[in-house]
Design a protein around this nucleic acid. Structure first.
Length: 880
RNA sequence: GCGCAGUUAGCUCAGCGGUAGAGCAUUCGCCUUACACGCGAAGGGUCAUAGGUUCAAAUCCUAUACUGCGCACCA
């Protein structure tokens, strides 16, 4: 029967357990537990307890940009599972939540939502209200920086409320008193303090140099935010002349940079071009004389083997320009258009000014792509184009959030010194325990491949400003070599409104006065400090000492290069320490066709709806099934399995409680000494092994393994052990029934605790109705993690259970084959097995015969010499 | 080009030297004093390929192929 509906309350039955009602409706029960946990301060961090008893989590602050999706549910649940285990070990948990609400995602969201653009020159409007989204980009309203920031703050506050509600509903055991927002005063202060500390230690510098530049957002970006995208480009073969006669042909995919050509290079061993080295070439169209130089980075196999170096086509050009101190002929502007330049003036040399300027006149003001087309036309007209452009696949660098290729544009930016510190940063990475271990490789490979320092300044608005001003000289030009750094005591500062010491506001922007740095920091410059934001580094020394370094950093693998790397960097530079001892790297949720979950899919499937349909426990079950680092297919059938497990747990508990409230369990409290029956002892021995394994695996961050065998053991318990002891429990034989009760009691307490990190709601529901009173522990989530030592006095041979199960299976198979019910009587059961198996069978015979409805007179047992063989059984059914 | 992970039943995965497993799906049954939101059973696999190590290989080693990802190159 198809039934996608949540658990429905079934008809109340007369014989229900006194403590657990018949129905359990997660959609109603789960929010109540959430509220209860909050009221009981279950998740509160206790600063009075020592570091050694504390488990500190450096939670990822999700980007606040609309809505959380199923991928968030997945990875945050995995963290919560680990945290709940630690809490049950008795640890004092520090589990904060942060909101990453500064930066471009917020700006973009606000722009679209309100139809506005930030224009710093527009004056502030008191009580401004947006007229709503606009269809056309040109209709966007231009508003002041302050109005824009106000919209950003209001919007993120709104989003954060929704996020928090979802996290609570999912059962994340966060201490909400520890929440922070990356744009809030505390984070701004911490970021600025970090900058000042790095400045004082000499780890940060500003320089005017070519940097990766996104022309759409008009900001610098860091290497970590770049990605390669495959594009269909064209090879253009272009003829160059050699001064003094001769010529050669270069191949390029970017002919529009021809005016920016500063050299031509060939491999020093390339026989074709050896004779040209040292001479000068003349560029087509612009007739600029450029040196022909040897370079090992010119690959004789590629293109024509000789290539032009421009300012700037790629990082190799930057390197070559820098190494050889060649002139800077920048033609790409900050907006991605070709800058107007004059040949024959300054650095733009030409052997024919008139021709050069005529050619360039047609290019200036065009976007790079348009200029490319135009250049090709000009080259063709001049006769410098050899053949026609040939299509080629090329990888082009983009800003990960951008739509146009990145350019190298010389601008002044702040950098953190990464390159010279690579060895130390690799070493720091090695000190962290990565889960899974192989994720360290990604870190290592990324650090080794870095070729630029970390550019931390962004030409944006909604972010943490640099606590920096520059003195202006008598012409009003800033002196960047003597920045005025704010004192730590006045942080956070906004250099646009605050005044540097020794100056007055009236001197802002005036010759001899000052100017504030108007850039903001890379959002990672703030989020790289999350462990220190939480610990209140630089504000509260005692707290910092108690919380730093953290124990656990959970995060996704795609931000190893950013978040993990930058955090390790900052912790080393500031504190000469690792930021955390463990990094747990979660996988991704992928769509059933193995692609990445797309936005459209994410929008149709909201976590809220899934929670309502399947319950939080069901979603958590799905997340808990996946190992760290491993991508998981989005599969709603797994939610259903999780839901079934929760229901089963509830029902099995009801049965156990029926027995525990019965006469056999009455009187003195049940104890291990009551467990006398061989089958019960065998079961307990089996479960003891599982508790030992569970602890070891959890300590190793292998929570999914625990869920796997806890679940297997639980279904086995229900389907076999419970069926076997059921009749004995009802039998009225005091000692035998009591043995079953004592085993059941412990078993239930073990399963509830084993499942508690995964299924916190159903386990708490049952615990509240069963053990809360008898154990004096009001919540399962602070009950001690199960240990085999709790049953140290009980030992048994799991073979007994195994053998009886095999015999019972034979009976069941026969009944199924004959299409009879499970209750159908068995007239004859003839078992052949080894001596140990036979001994086990004899001891548990009553349980077996009762569970199988086997006639005692029809049972026979024949022993063979060894236990190696599988038990054989002949079954004959009786008549009804 | 370098690196990492993976390849086991129709699907999703576990197993990682000792008789090929689970869930889902499929098929056939069953009202059984916790649960029909349940229970029982059945069918279904040369464990990617080829070599090697071993008494014994899905499991260890070496290649190869394919898949995904990361890094680098990218005139």
């Amino acid at each position: 029967m198809e039934n996608d509906a949540p658990l429905q309350k079934t008809e109340e039955k007369a014989s229900g357990s006194p403590s657990l009602p018949t129905g359990y409706v997660p959609a109603e029960a789960e929010p109540l537990h959430c509220r209860k946990w909050e009221e009981d301060r279950l998740y509160h961090y206790d600063p009075s307890r020592p570091r050694s008893e504390t488990f500190v989590v450096d939670t990822p602050p999700p980007t606040v940009s609309g809505a959380l999706h199923i991928g968030h549910v997945f990875s945050y649940t995995q963290t919560d599972i680990l945290v709940r285990y630690q809490r049950m070990l008795g640890k004092n948990i520090f589990y904060p939540m942060g909101w990453d609400d500064n930066g471009l995602p917020t700006e973009r969201r606000v722009q679209n939502l309100f139809g506005v653009r930030c224009e710093p020159s527009v004056p502030y409007k008191e009580g401004y209200k947006s007229a709503g989204p606009k269809k056309d980009l040109k209709d966007y309203e231009h508003i002041s920086r302050r109005n824009f920031l106000e919209l950003c703050e209001a919007q993120t506050a709104e989003d954060e409320k929704r996020y928090e509600a979802l996290w609570r509903r999912l059962g994340l055991s966060i201490d909400w008193r520890q929440a922070y927002s990356t744009v809030g005063a505390h984070c701004r202060k911490t970021s600025q303090f970090s900058f000042i500390d790095l400045f004082r230690k000499g780890f940060v510098y500003s320089a005017e140099t070519p940097t990766l530049w996104d022309t759409t957002f008009r900001t610098a970006v860091a290497q970590a935010e770049c990605e390669d995208r495959e594009a269909n480009g064209f090879f253009h073969e272009i003829k160059f002349q050699v001064q003094g006669g001769g010529g050669f042909t270069i191949a390029t995919t970017r002919p529009e940079l021809l005016a920016a050509c500063i050299a031509v290079v060939a491999h020093p061993d390339d026989e074709r071009y050896k004779a040209l080295l040292g001479k000068k070439a003349l560029t087509p169209l612009f007739k600029a004389p450029v040196p022909i130089m040897p370079s090992f980075h010119a690959d004789p196999e590629k293109g024509t083997g000789i290539m032009m170096v421009c300012t700037f086509g790629d990082i190799a050009d930057v390197q070559f320009w820098r190494d050889h101190k060649l002139p800077l002929r920048q033609v790409i502007g900050r907006d991605g258009r070709l800058i107007p330049v004059q040949f024959g003036a300054g650095l733009f040399e030409s052997a024919d000014h008139a021709a050069a300027n005529a050619a360039y006149g047609g290019l200036a003001g065009l976007y790079a792509k348009q200029a490319r087309t135009k250049t090709v036309e000009l080259l063709r007209a001049e006769g410098s184009l050899v053949g026609e452009p040939r299509p080629t696949k090329q990888a082009v660098k983009y800003y990960e959030k951008g739509d146009l290729p990145l350019e190298f544009v010389p601008t002044r930016q702040w950098y953190i010194k990464i390159l010279e510190n690579k060895p130390a940063l690799l070493e720091q990475g090695r000190k962290v325990a990565w889960h899974p271990e192989y994720m360290f490789k990604r870190y290592e490979q990324w650090v080794e491949g870095l070729n630029q320092d970390w550019c931390i300044s962004r030409q944006r608005y909604f972010g943490v400003p640099f606590p920096v001003w520059y003195p202006l000289d008598h012409d009003g030009a800033p002196d960047y070599s003597s920045p005025i750094i704010a004192g730590p005591e006045r942080l956070p500062v906004d250099p646009q409104t605050d005044v540097p010491p020794g100056y007055a506001e009236a001197q802002r922007g005036k010759p001899g006065g000052f100017v504030g740095d108007h850039d903001v920091m890379d959002t990672w410059a703030t989020s790289s400090l999350t462990p220190m934001i939480s610990s209140r580094w630089a504000i509260d020394k005692a707290r910092h000492a108690n919380l730093f370094p953290a124990d656990l950093r959970p995060q996704a693998h795609e931000i190893i290069r950013t978040w993990a790397f930058y955090t390790i960097t900052k912790a080393w530079m500031h504190e000469n320490s690792v930021p955390w001892h463990n990094a747990a790297i979660s996988g991704w949720v992928v769509s059933p066709d193995k692609g990445k979950m797309s936005k459209s899919k994410g929008n149709t499937i909201t976590p809220e709806g899934l929670l309502q349909t399947y319950s939080a426990d069901a979603l958590r079950y799905w997340a808990g099934k996946a190992k760290l680092g491993q991508d998981t297919v989005y599969d709603e059938s797994v939610f259903k399995v999780g839901m079934r497990l929760a229901t089963k747990l509830y029902n099995a508990s009801r049965f156990a409680m029926l027995q525990l409230k019965g006469p056999a369990a009455a009187g003195a409290p049940l104890s291990p000494a009551d467990i006398t029956e061989p089958l019960d002892r065998a079961w307990v021995a089996h479960l003891k092994k599982i508790t030992d394994d569970a602890r070891a695996d959890f300590d190793n961050y292998e929570y999914s393994a625990v869920l796997l065998y806890a679940e297997t053991a639980f279904w086995d318990f229900c389907d076999n052990y419970l069926e076997l002891v059921k009749n004995r429990a009802y039998s009225g034989k005091p000692a035998a029934a009591r043995s079953a009760c004592a085993a059941l009691e412990w078993t239930l307490r073990v399963f509830l605790r084993l499942f508690a990190p995964f299924l916190p709601f159903i386990t708490e529901e049952v615990w509240g109705g069963t053990f809360a009173a008898s154990t004096g522990l009001p919540t399962v989530h602070k009950a001690p993690w199960p240990a085999s030592a709790e049953m140290a006095a009980v030992d048994g041979d799991p073979l007994a259970l195994e053998t009886v199960r095999k015999a019972l299976e034979a009976v069941r198979t026969k009944k199924a084959a004959e299409k009879r019910s499970v209750k159908w009587p068995v007239a004859r059961l003839a078992v052949t097995c080894g001596p140990k198996q036979a001994a086990a069978l004899r001891l548990a015979l009553e349980d077996l015969l009762a569970a199988g409805a086997v006639d005692k007179a029809g049972f026979s047992l024949a022993e063979t010499g060894s236990d190696d063989k599988v038990l054989q059984a002949v079954v004959e059914l009786g008549t009804a």
